Amino acid sequence: MASWGDLAAYVNDTYDVISVQEDEIRILFNFEQFDEDDERTQVIILVREVLDNMHEWVQIASPIGLAANVDLRALLEEVGNSTIACGAAIMGEHVVLRHSLPLVDLDIHEFTDPLALLAGSADRLEETFFGGDAY
């Protein structure tokens, strides 16, 4: 991977893309590809970020619920105890899990592995703290 365009082409060929904007791609991560009996999905938002006007990064984020509807301390403790490839943040009204990667010299597994880990963590935390699969 060398650029946002390269990553966008890979994502379009590999995942279920639900919307595309100039610097943002939304995908529906389908867990069924790993477990035929699992029909859960997770919305993942990929955003191109530029650091210092010259370094391209991709931010992988997934909303898990409304910040107003959760015990943030309990959620953050769980994130701290059980996740490896993401952190939690509030963006707008939503709690999101997110992870960022530099695009220069990015190996595809450096993207796909954290993406899958983040999607799984987001799905589990969404179920545990928000009681469903809304995102």
Rank of each mutant, 00 (worst) to 15 (best):
A134K: 11
E32M: 15
P63D: 04
S100E: 05
V70E: 02
I27V: 14
R40C: 07
R48C: 06
G132A: 03
F34S: 15
V58L: 06
D16C: 07
H109F: 12
A9F: 10
E78L: 04
I84H: 03
C86D: 10
V104A: 12
G92K: 08
D133C: 00
E24C: 12
L103N: 10
A9W: 08
T112R: 06
E78C: 08
R98I: 00
A9E: 12
L76F: 02
I108A: 04
A8C: 15
N53P: 10
P114A: 07
L72I: 06
I45S: 05
A67C: 00
A119D: 04
G132Y: 01
A88F: 02
T14F: 02
P114C: 06
I84V: 12
E127T: 05
A9H: 11
Y15I: 09
D16H: 14
D71K: 00
I60F: 02
D23N: 09
E39L: 15
I84A: 10
P63H: 02
P102E: 06
D123C: 09
Y135S: 06
D105S: 14
I25L: 15
A2I: 02
E78M: 03
P114W: 02
L66D: 07
Q59A: 05
I27A: 13
G87D: 09
Y135M: 05
I90P: 08
I25P: 10
V58T: 06
S121F: 00
L97A: 06
V95S: 06
G131T: 03
E110P: 04
W4E: 08
G92W: 02
H55E: 15
A67N: 07
D6I: 01
I64Y: 01
V58G: 14
I108G: 05
L51D: 06
I25W: 09
I44F: 14
E56H: 13
D37C: 00
R98K: 13
V43M: 13
S3R: 11
H94N: 15
R26W: 08
V17W: 03
A134M: 10
S100A: 07
G65K: 05
W57Y: 14
E36D: 04
R98E: 12
C86R: 10
F111Y: 05
D113H: 08
G80K: 11
V17A: 04
D38Q: 05
G5E: 15
H109A: 06
L72F: 00
T128E: 15
V47D: 02
L66H: 01
L115T: 02
D13Y: 00
L103H: 08
R40F: 01
D35N: 11
A116D: 07
L103Y: 09
V95W: 08
D105F: 09
A89V: 12
L106W: 04
N53A: 14
F111D: 01
A89F: 03
M91N: 09
I90H: 12
G92F: 01
I108S: 03
Q33H: 06
I25M: 12
